[in-house]
Simulated scan of single mutants.
Amino acid sequence: MAVRPISITGDPVLHSPASQVSLVDEGLRTLVRDMFETMDAAPGVGLAAPQVGVGLRLFVWSWVDDDGQGSRGVAVNPTLWQTPLGIEPLDDDGESEGCLSIPGERFPLRRADRVLLRATDLEGEQFEVEAHGWLARIFQHEYDHLDGVLYADRLEHPFHKAAAKQVKRSSWGVPGKTWLPGVDDLDA
């Protein structure tokens, strides 16, 4: 296993739809092990293959709620259904979201409270997970990566403008920028 560099916004792999996984082989299993190690080292709660430079429809997650209940898994070629978004004002703290590909930044973003994730695991078995709250947010965030969408792309004004300024200030937004968890001093 190895910690892989995480692509930073601007790299084309992050802004393009990922391809379907056609074969689960030892190379894909190694990628998944590396993704878990990278996510844990960052630390993060989810990581999509495009974030480590691989344009495949695959993500991993690991999250524990306040009651100590956890969920950890891998979703290969997922589909995601979500409930409609609420219309109440954004909660700047409760709906704050960050991304390992925009390290150190957090902004409020409205997400659906409930989702249904359907995917395949590494053994080729189909599964589904009904999620709500933060796990639903994680699934939506990682699923967006598979469609070439970063959470900053979904931000409303004035948060979209603030995120764009930070990207420019950090000299991101161009191909080839990465950071390595455990090595680079970034506040992800």
Rank of each mutant, 00 (worst) to 15 (best):
L28P: 04
L58E: 06
P78N: 08
A49N: 06
L80P: 03
R57S: 01
T83M: 05
V76C: 08
V76D: 06
T79A: 07
A42H: 09
D34V: 11
E88A: 15
E97D: 13
P84W: 06
G98E: 09
P89M: 13
G53Q: 09
D92E: 15
S62L: 01
P78A: 00
D67V: 08
P43R: 14
G70Y: 05
P43E: 09
L90T: 10
D65R: 05
V64Y: 00
R29G: 03
E97L: 02
C99W: 04
G86K: 14
F36A: 08
T38A: 04
V60T: 13
L80H: 08
L90F: 13
G94V: 12
A48D: 11
G94D: 13
G44T: 12
G68D: 06
L58D: 04
D67E: 15
L90I: 15
L47R: 09
D65M: 03
L85D: 01
G73P: 03
P89N: 11
Q51I: 01
D40Q: 13
N77A: 01
F36P: 05
D66I: 02
D65Q: 06
L90A: 08
C99P: 02
P43C: 07
W61P: 00
G94M: 12
G27C: 01
V45R: 14
G55V: 00
G27I: 00
F36D: 05
W63Y: 15
T30Y: 00
V74L: 05
V54L: 00
A75P: 00
A49M: 03
L31W: 06
T38G: 06
P78E: 06
M35V: 12
G73H: 10
M35K: 08
V32W: 00
G44C: 08
V54P: 02
W63K: 02
V52P: 07
D93M: 14
A48C: 03
V60A: 05
P50L: 08
C99S: 10
V24H: 09
D34G: 10
G98T: 11
D66G: 03
R33A: 14
T83D: 15
T38V: 08
L28I: 15
D34R: 09
G27P: 00
E26F: 03
S62D: 15
G27Y: 01
V24S: 09
G27W: 00
Q51R: 09
D67G: 07
L47P: 02
E95G: 08
C99E: 02
M35E: 10
Q51C: 01
D40K: 15
G46L: 06
D66P: 00
G44H: 13
L23A: 13
G46I: 05
V60Q: 03
E26A: 14
D93W: 11
W61K: 00
R72T: 15
G70Q: 07
V32F: 05
P89F: 14
F59E: 05
A41T: 15
D34P: 07
L47W: 04
S62V: 02
G44N: 10
L58F: 08
A42T: 15
Q51N: 12
M39I: 09
V52H: 07
C99A: 06
S96Q: 14
G73K: 03
T83G: 01
V24G: 09
L85P: 01
R33Q: 12
D93F: 12
P89V: 14
W63E: 07
